[in-house]
Write a protein that binds this DNA or RNA. Structure first.
Lengths: 108, 108
DNA sequence: TTCATGTGTAAGTGAAGACTTACAGGCGGG
DNA sequence: CCCGCCTGTAAGTCTTCACTTACACATGAA
């Protein structure tokens, strides 16, 4: 994880609404409209946030067909675990220059 | 650490400039003007960021008098270490309602 | 006194992003 | 056909926040 990815991650989580989304999804997968109702948030707004969370790798969405033929966009939490301290940040910065040496290390 | 504090922390770190400030301060304490020069940032702007970092508890500043009588505002990193995953976030949320029971637990 | 260093803040500009309203569909059922 | 549910996205508004310029003030040295 380099600086850019770390930043995207932190900026994604560092927002009240998105934190709420994570909390809600923690209890299980939901589709967008249902999630919007639970959070009391407009669907387009929720879309924006989900998009951002997905880009940062915090959630993943998939389109599914329900029994009665309706298309439902389900979102679920992606497992993430980032230790945040000075060393972590410096380590991320060190990755920036390093041109992907080593054959595809662990976790991204 | 409750949701509010966690959010302040994440929002503080989730910004490119402030991440740079942390990196720079990682190598040692600096006073504002010097830090501004190193980062190539205007001093008032740096002030804003430092203020935010200080509120979130990431840095601490103290005013000192140099040998030649000049007042220098030094900033240094405060030790921080936050594990960021779903459980951590849910744990923070759980603290929100809990009205400070238990006599002053560890770390804030 | 003037110049160079520093702290601190006020006030304005500008861009980013959060949020809304409004629309384009698709499907099933009355 | 017209509702009810859903997915998408476009196009605005509006607020927040990043950032600049400009000032007031203090000190030590020339």
């Amino acid at each position: 994880m380099n600086s850019e990815e770390l930043l995207a991650f932190l900026a994604a989580v560092g927002h009240a609404q998105r934190l709420r989304i994570i909390k809600e999804l923690a209890s299980g997968t939901l589709y967008v409209s249902e999630l919007a109702r639970r959070l009391g948030v407009s669907r387009p707004l929720l879309y924006m946030h989900l998009e951002r969370l997905e880009k940062a790798g915090l959630v993943v969405g998939r389109l599914e067909l329900s029994d009665d033929g309706k298309a439902l966009k389900y979102f679920e939490l992606a497992p993430f675990d980032v230790q945040l301290n000075v060393d972590t940040i410096l380590a991320a910065a060190r990755q920036d220059g390093a041109s992907e040496t080593g054959q595809a290390g662990q976790a991204e």
